Simulated scan of single mutants.
Amino acid sequence: MTSPGSVLTPEQWGRDVLLPHRPHATNHLDRGQYRYSRDDALLMRYIEHSPHALLGSIVVDCDHPDAALRAFEQPSDHPMPNWVAQSPSGRAHLGWWLAAPVCRTDSARLQPLRFAHRVERGLCISVSGDFAYGGQLTKNPIHPDWETIYGPSTPYELRDLVTIHTPRQMPRRPDRAAGLGRNVTMFDTARLWAYGQWWEHRHGGVDAWLQLVLQRCHAINTEFADPLPFVEVRATAHSVGKWIWRNFDEVAYRARQAELGRKGGKIGGKIGGRVVSPAKIEANRQRRIKIDRALALEVLR
């Protein structure tokens, strides 16, 4: 146990904050990353702070020479990070340690991951961080190449990391996704696609089904500016595929389709078999009016 107000130590970071048993690590980012034993990985300059299945810390890349000032000293509404590992140029990785790790591979529990994504984006905005940072490898705060400033020795609950910059919702287009947004976008895009595909492939067996979902997740991953590691893509695909295979049958599928049809009939209409919202119907109507007016003016001329 740590006393209130105590400061994180290098020993505590290596023992408690670092989650993977065999982290990916490297001394040079351009030469690739490999798995090492925990002790060997702690000797490398860059290290994987959380395993692919669990998010144990939120790390933000602050690509400014005054990163430590932005993290600790300047007036801001964000909580103090647990550590800041900075290079000689002053640029740094800022880390907030989570009391309860967030699962990144369970399609049945997307809400905590979505919340973590919003929290990550809010912290990034607060310190003017790099939105393109992938988040897998971080500057190893124990390595002597970095000057590390340690903050509180106690982890944060996710709700304690909410700031005025935390967005209420995030864009889900793959080409706009970064950091945790890639996991959320892959889950949402893959599962919505898979719901409709299950009916056509329900007689092909679970292995063929999982392979199909994996191919779809891989296609989504190629749309990210910084793709996820294959192990995360595979874990997401299996989570989505197994959940649907386990929970769907013909009765459940027909009930879902009937519910979608009922909602579509109440809130809008259908065009070409697609449910269209009232707002889109009105926008189409206004567009037709503009076209008709333009055509009438052309005829009068």
Rank of each mutant, 00 (worst) to 15 (best):
Q111T: 12
P141M: 00
A68Q: 12
P229D: 03
V213S: 08
A85V: 01
V233Q: 02
T9L: 01
R173P: 00
G151E: 06
G268K: 07
I125T: 13
K139H: 13
R35T: 01
L137Q: 00
V276H: 02
H218P: 04
M80R: 13
F131N: 06
I291G: 02
K280T: 11
R22P: 07
Q12M: 14
Q136S: 12
S126G: 08
V213D: 02
G261Q: 11
G241W: 02
P141D: 02
P174E: 05
E232M: 13
L54C: 04
E200T: 12
G269A: 07
Q12W: 13
P229A: 04
Q215H: 15
F187P: 06
S50A: 02
M170W: 10
L212K: 13
R15D: 10
L228F: 01
V299G: 10
Q136D: 09
Y195Q: 09
S87Q: 15
I149H: 15
A237S: 08
D61L: 06
L110M: 14
D77R: 14
L8T: 00
A283G: 01
M186P: 06
W13C: 02
E120G: 09
L228E: 00
R262W: 08
P167C: 07
W243Y: 12
T189Y: 13
H143F: 01
E298L: 15
G272F: 01
A108H: 12
A99K: 15
G129K: 07
D160E: 15
A116P: 08
G196L: 00
Y34L: 13
T163Y: 14
A53K: 10
E259Q: 13
V119C: 04
Y36V: 03
R91Y: 06
R202L: 00
L180T: 00
P81D: 03
P171V: 02
H64Q: 12
S107Y: 11
S37F: 08
P152C: 02
V84M: 06
G179A: 05
N221R: 00
P23L: 08
W96Y: 12
A258D: 13
D207K: 13
I142G: 06
A208E: 12
D30C: 09
W245Y: 15
Q12H: 14
V240L: 05
S107N: 08
H117S: 15
R191H: 11
P88N: 03
L214P: 07
H28D: 15
G273M: 06
F187S: 05
E282A: 13
S6N: 09
E223T: 05
L55Y: 04
R172G: 11
R287E: 04
Q215W: 10
T236H: 08
H93W: 06
G5D: 02
V276I: 13
R38A: 03
V184N: 07
P4R: 09
T148M: 06
T189G: 10
V251L: 11
P167H: 10
Y195E: 09
H52M: 08
L29Q: 06
A190L: 09
E147K: 15
L113S: 04
L123C: 02
